[in-house]
């Protein structure tokens, strides 16, 4: 609950304002590549659940409405400063 998140448009804001969008897994493969249920399940439902620095998506729900990624240390629940946030 105490997380502070740096929105690329609005700056550092209270984590309450954002919605989590999952870890960054790269663009979704073509549908053809997801024809096998295993491949589909792997991409859609499996996460790496990394302990440590993780790149992840956040949505500025109570703000500008942008989706962007930040790097967060999942152990300390702190945003890792200095890493460039991307829209």
């Amino acid at each position: 609950m105490a997380l502070t998140i740096t929105c690329p448009i609005c700056g550092a804001r209270n984590g309450y304002e954002f919605r989590y969008g999952g870890e960054e897994k790269g663009p979704k493969p073509d549908e053809a590549a997801l024809r096998s249920p295993e491949a589909w399940c792997d991409y859609i439902h499996f996460n790496r659940c990394k302990a440590g620095a993780q790149e992840e998506w956040w949505f500025h729900r109570d703000g500008c409405g942008a989706w962007f990624t930040i790097h967060r240390d999942t152990v300390t629940n702190r945003e890792i400063p200095g890493k460039e946030a991307g829209i």
Binding site: P27, W57, W67
Partner: peptide, 11 residues
């Protein structure tokens, strides 16, 4: 809805 559409076009 807006969040949903933007999420699925984010790349």
């Amino acid at each position: 809805s807006a969040e949903w559409i933007r999420y699925h076009t984010r790349y």
